[in-house]
Design a protein around this nucleic acid. Structure first.
Length: 450
RNA sequence: GCUGUGGUGGUGUAGGGGUUAGCACGGCAGAUUGUGGUUCUGCCAGCCCGGGUUCAAUUCCCGGCCACGGCCCCA
């Protein structure tokens, strides 16, 4: 291709999706959408770009370095959206205040992050997500998590792990032993403690407790708590551990247990469930249950989905609707995992229902005016049949080859003799069977459905 | 932010300081002007970009770009 040097390349970190890939992506999207619909969620859509402030308010000024930020001609600071939760919150505050609560919203679209792209990480990527707004508690969380489980189950994903935790458990323990959640300056002691626990830095934790005049006897049970892991039984172990610590509330633990119990009723069991009570999820706006889904096929972290209960609407003056619960699903990553699993099993269908089962007819006008067949084509299409007309005036043999290679299940050659007799044969390309038909829609339809 | 490997037609690849740059798949056409998937023939189409070394670079060196990985991070 001599012209290549003049061609414009796709920007770094972006992808094109050809027809075969789009068929799969559309099938996956409608599968997710159908599950969301059955759980009462309705689709919304927000702009591809937003005010820069929207994301700095949510995540701090540090995010700007990872944004596709720009100024428009009015020198307004804008950015391509890096995620979809904040835009949806903005939309709720701006437009949906008067809707009956709670709101169940779903969304899908591309997001942009300026960062090095790795396996399953692109600068332009697609996220599917839901938010349940205006209700709080274990049942709300169970509804949201059950939807996530049902989506992944229906998508046919295997071998995935649901990790579930509750930021309140640790917060209640830490404040129960006397760590403060606020500070005059810098990081509150409680947040520092969470960070130490997350990094398994128990010396740092000991020093922190000392500096706060809190007994270092708590280091040992805290370490035990942070090292608890396993399935549902983890909750009972934690309950035992916490009951030895004076002044520590068990409310969050009770909520988490209640959530897990409801999930078990609302969704099939995930292939693997692990409970982790010291998940930090870094972000301070998470308030309750937090959860992630990991798939080993992706290597590394392998996270394909993440969410939880969080407080963000107070930023928009709607504190009474906090906290909300939602999750974001990494559309590209789940597809990657599904593709890897399908390849390992030698399966050609990656997303259930991605193959179009509609009869597909190749219409081949042969030595006749195409106007002779166009009415028939229209009628067949109106009947729901997929019809493609041979447009290059190929000879018969080539036309058959063309019909086969575009994936048509049937070919119909209409030549002068057929028009004269009002008869023709539909050829089933899978086995070469010739089906005699009259040249009218009803007759052809019954041949295709035979 | 750190780091590894690699870039040859549309795709997958062979080769290699001087070559008509080979092969396969693909696309188009013919053998075969009313019935395809086999076969045969022909055609289409390529050494990522820039600089350096050299009589000569697609090949060696440097830089860039791009691709694929591994850490860190991930709203």
């Amino acid at each position: 291709m001599a012209l290549r040097r003049f061609m414009v390349q796709r920007p770094r970190g972006t992808r094109d999706f050809g027809p075969a890939e789009m068929k799969r992506r559309l099938a996956f999207e409608s599968l997710l959408e159908e599950q969301a619909r059955r759980h009462g969620f309705s689709r919304v859509q927000t702009p591809i770009f937003e005010s820069l402030d929207l994301f700095t308010a949510k995540s701090g000024p540090g995010v700007v370095s990872q944004l596709y930020a720009f100024q428009d001609k009015g020198e307004r600071d804008l950015t391509l959206r890096p995620e979809l939760t904040a835009p949806v919150m903005r939309m709720v505050a701006e437009e949906l205040r008067n809707e009956t609560k709670p709101l169940r919203l779903s969304y899908y679209g591309q997001c942009f992050r300026y960062e090095e792209f790795k396996k399953g990480r692109y600068r332009e990527f697609y996220q599917y997500g839901v938010e349940l707004i205006g209700a709080t508690g274990p049942l709300v969380e169970a509804e949201v998590i059950a939807l996530a489980i049902n989506m992944l189950t229906e998508a046919g994903l295997k071998n995935w792990e649901l990790r579930i935790g509750h930021v309140g458990v640790l917060k209640q323990v830490l404040s129960g032993i006397g760590l403060s959640d606020s500070a005059e300056a810098g990081e509150p002691p409680l947040a520092s403690a969470m960070r130490f626990l997350d990094k398994a830095d128990f010396e740092g934790l000991r020093a922190l407790l000392e500096s706060q005049s809190i007994s270092t006897d708590f280091v040992a049970p805290l370490q035990q708590l942070s090292e608890l892991k396993g399935g549902e039984e983890t909750i009972a172990s934690a309950r035992e551990l916490l009951s030895t610590m004076d002044g520590v509330s068990l409310d969050a633990l009770d909520d988490l247990e209640s959530t897990i119990n409801s999930i078990a009723q609302l969704a099939p069991s995930p292939p693997s469930l692990s409970v982790n009570l010291t998940v930090a999820r870094g972000l301070d706006y998470y308030t309750g249950t937090v959860f992630e889904v990991h798939v080993p096929e992706l290597g590394g972290e392998g996270q394909v989905l993440g969410g939880g209960s969080y407080k963000l609407l107070h930023l928009f003056g709607l504190a009474d609707l906090d906290p909300c619960c939602g999750f974001g699903l990494g559309f590209d990553r789940v597809l990657l995992a599904l593709e890897a699993q399908a390849a390992a099993e030698g399966r050609s269908e990656v997303v259930p229902g991605e193959d179009d089962e509609t009869p597909f007819l190749a219409m081949i006008p042969f030595n006749v005016e195409t106007s002779e067949v166009l009415d028939l084509v229209r009628e067949l299409r109106q009947s729901g049949i997929r019809v493609e007309i041979e447009l290059r005036s190929r000879k018969i043999g080539k036309a058959m080859g063309w019909a086969d290679s575009i994936g048509a299940g049937y070919a119909l050659v209409v030549g002068p003799r057929d028009l004269e007799q009002g008869q023709a044969t539909v050829k089933r390309l899978s086995d070469g069977e010739q089906l005699p038909v009259a040249l009218n829609t009803e007759s052809i339809l019954s041949a295709l459905n035979a």
